[in-house]
Simulated assay, not measured.
Amino acid sequence: MAKGSKEKAARRKRVHDSIRQTIMGTSQRPRLSVYRSNKYIYAQLIDDLSGKTLTAASSLEADVSGENRTEESRHVGELVAERAQEEGITKAVFDRSGYKYHGRVRAVAEGARDGGLHL
């Protein structure tokens, strides 16, 4: 029997809460949080101690392009890494937000690494 969307969302929320109990971003090593919708992907670097977003990028931006959503996700990772380096940030903690480390979520992480961010 297939899982319904409510069960999937509840499971993702439980996994995300579990991940957030162990991961915390600081100003020196912020948390790279990923949100994935069906059409777009968003990434932001968050300092949890001050509760502020340091930099962000998404596939909605004009300079992000690709043949498919996975390539766009990779470009989002590279873009957020580039913006992080402008802020003087070289290290981050990757927060997959309860999604599987697969596909577009993985592409964001690899793009950030290629952009010079150490995860």
Rank of each mutant, 00 (worst) to 15 (best):
L60F: 11
A92S: 11
Y35D: 07
S73R: 10
A92D: 01
K52D: 00
N68Q: 11
E110N: 06
T70W: 06
S27M: 08
G103M: 11
R20Y: 04
L117D: 01
K100Q: 01
Q21T: 15
Y40N: 15
K13C: 02
V108F: 13
E82D: 09
R104Q: 04
A57E: 05
G25L: 01
D17M: 11
L117V: 03
H102K: 02
E78Q: 15
K91D: 15
E87S: 05
A56E: 11
R14P: 12
H102V: 00
A84P: 04
V105N: 11
V93W: 01
V105W: 03
E110A: 06
H118W: 03
V105Y: 08
V80F: 05
G51S: 02
K100E: 01
L45H: 02
S5L: 10
M24Y: 13
K3W: 13
S73L: 08
G115Q: 03
R106Y: 02
R113I: 06
A107T: 11
E82Q: 14
S58Q: 03
L45S: 06
G88A: 09
Q44A: 08
S5P: 14
Q44E: 04
N38R: 07
L32V: 10
V34S: 10
V64C: 07
V76C: 03
L54S: 08
E67H: 09
K8N: 08
S50V: 05
E86Y: 03
A107I: 08
E72A: 13
R31D: 03
R113Y: 07
M24A: 14
D95N: 07
R11S: 13
E82M: 12
Y99H: 04
L45M: 10
E86T: 05
R12M: 12
A57C: 14
Q44P: 07
E61G: 02
G4L: 08
S58K: 05
V15I: 15
A81V: 08
H75C: 10
H118T: 14
S97F: 02
D17Q: 15
T53R: 09
G115F: 12
D47C: 06
G88S: 07
L32M: 13
A81Y: 12
H102D: 00
H75R: 15
T53A: 10
Y40V: 09
R96W: 05
E61N: 01
L60M: 09
E82K: 15
L54P: 09
E67R: 14
Q28I: 01
R14H: 10
T53H: 00
R104G: 05
G66L: 06
D48A: 06
S65R: 14
K8L: 14
Y99A: 03
T53K: 11
R29S: 11
D95T: 04
L49V: 13
S18T: 12
S33E: 13
Q85E: 10
A107C: 12
V93N: 04
R29K: 15
D17C: 08
T22W: 02
A92F: 01
R31Y: 01
R104W: 06
E87T: 00
S58F: 02
I23D: 03
I89E: 01
I23H: 07
T90P: 00
D63E: 14
L60Y: 05
H75A: 15
V15Q: 06
A57T: 03
G4H: 05
E67A: 12
R11Y: 07
Q21V: 11
E86P: 00
S59H: 00
A112E: 04
A84Y: 02
S5Q: 13
H75D: 05
S37I: 05
A81K: 03
I19C: 03
R14D: 11
N68R: 10
H75P: 00
R14N: 12
